[in-house]
Structures are given as C-alpha cells and as structure tokens.
Amino acid sequence: MTDTSWTLTAAEGELQIFTGVGGPAAKMGHRLTITFASWQAQVQWRGDEPVAARLVVDVDSLQVVRGEGGVTPLTGPEKGVVRSNALKSLDAKKFPQISFDTESISPTTGGYRLAGSVTIHGTTRPQSVDLAVEEHDGMWVMSTEVAVVQTEFGVKPYSLFVGTLKVADEVTLRFTARHPR
C-alpha cells in the first residue's frame, strides 16, 4: 500500500458560513454569507482509503460576501463593519486559526464520516462531519454542511440595540472542494 497526501486550498474549493438573525428586531438585520479566503486541508491516504485529515482556517481571511434581508441592502462600507465585528467576536488576534482534526474516517453511503475535534476561539470540542463525495469528469467533488453553535466555543454572537438585534447563535458552515481522482 502506498501512502499519499492531498493538499486542498481556497483555489480548489470554498469554505462559507451562513448566519441567521435573532432578537425582537430580527427583521431589521441581514442574514450573512461569509467566506474564508485562506484555508488549507491536508488529507492522508493509505492506498485507496483516507486515514487522516486536518483543516486549518486563517480567521483574518474572513470576508463578508453578502447580506440578505434587512431594512436596506448591505453596502460595501457596512460589509467592512460586519467583518470588523466578526473578527472582534472571534478574537482573531488572540485566536488566529480555526482547525478541525480527524481521529477516524469511516466510509458511508456516498462519502465518509470524519470524526474528530474542532478548535474555535481556543475551545476544542468533538465534531463529526459527513462528507459527501461524488465523481464528475475525473474529479472528486466533496461537500459537507454542519451547524456550529458559537457560544459552545466561547464566542459571543454580535448584537446591537441592547440585544434586540443579534447574529443567531447557530451558524451553518458549508465546505466544498474538487480534486482530481
């Protein structure tokens, strides 16, 4: 059996976060789409089976792509304010990276289950991820979507107007990537 490894980056895929809005004034807020421009996933293979994976995300590469809903459209300058607030909530200077490390990888129908731990804001918690894998035109297309509760990692969701408008505690993380088979 031959051991090989893959390295995936933002050039091969996308790592996005989708937020909701909470509080009595929720209709005033925007549901955000956030992306990270700098991340790296390493996958170790033994023969035809993945045996380990590690994802590292550079928090300060966070970019606000769009905001849906709200009273008015989200403007460019407002995206900058949202980015700044998100980096403060994540305490990006003290905790510059988010990581996910597998402890086991097992085949599932249509992909793999990655069980391991995720570290956000200096807090590490167990996490399982079901990664869908499909083959298209000689490429493996991988995707997953997982809910993350910010307060479980010590992250206080951003709020305005004494908490009457706030980012929902649960956000959705979506990962997609392509790699030659």
Rank of each mutant, 00 (worst) to 15 (best):
T72L: 12
P73Y: 10
L74S: 03
G76H: 15
E78S: 09
V81R: 15
V82M: 04
S84M: 11
N85C: 05
A86F: 03
A86I: 10
K88F: 07
K88C: 09
S89M: 13
S89D: 12
L90H: 03
L90A: 02
A92Q: 06
A92F: 09
A92P: 00
K93H: 15
K94M: 14
K94F: 15
F95V: 10
P96C: 12
Q97A: 11
Q97F: 11
S99C: 08
F100S: 01
D101N: 01
D101L: 08
E103M: 10
I105W: 00
I105Y: 03
I105D: 01
P107Y: 05
T109C: 11
G110F: 09
G110Q: 07
G111A: 13
Y112Q: 01
L114G: 07
L114T: 03
A115V: 12
A115P: 05
A115L: 11
G116I: 00
S117K: 12
S117C: 10
S117M: 04
V118C: 02
V118A: 08
V118P: 00
T119N: 03
T119G: 01
I120D: 00
H121T: 13
G122W: 00
R125H: 03
R125C: 09
R125P: 14
Q127P: 02
Q127M: 10
S128Y: 07
S128I: 08
S128F: 02
D130Y: 09
L131P: 03
L131Q: 06
E134G: 05
H136S: 14
M139L: 02
W140R: 06
V141F: 11
M142L: 15
S143N: 10
S143V: 07
T144R: 01
T144P: 06
E145V: 11
V146H: 14
A147S: 06
A147H: 08
A147F: 00
V148P: 06
V149Q: 13
Q150Y: 12
T151F: 10
T151D: 13
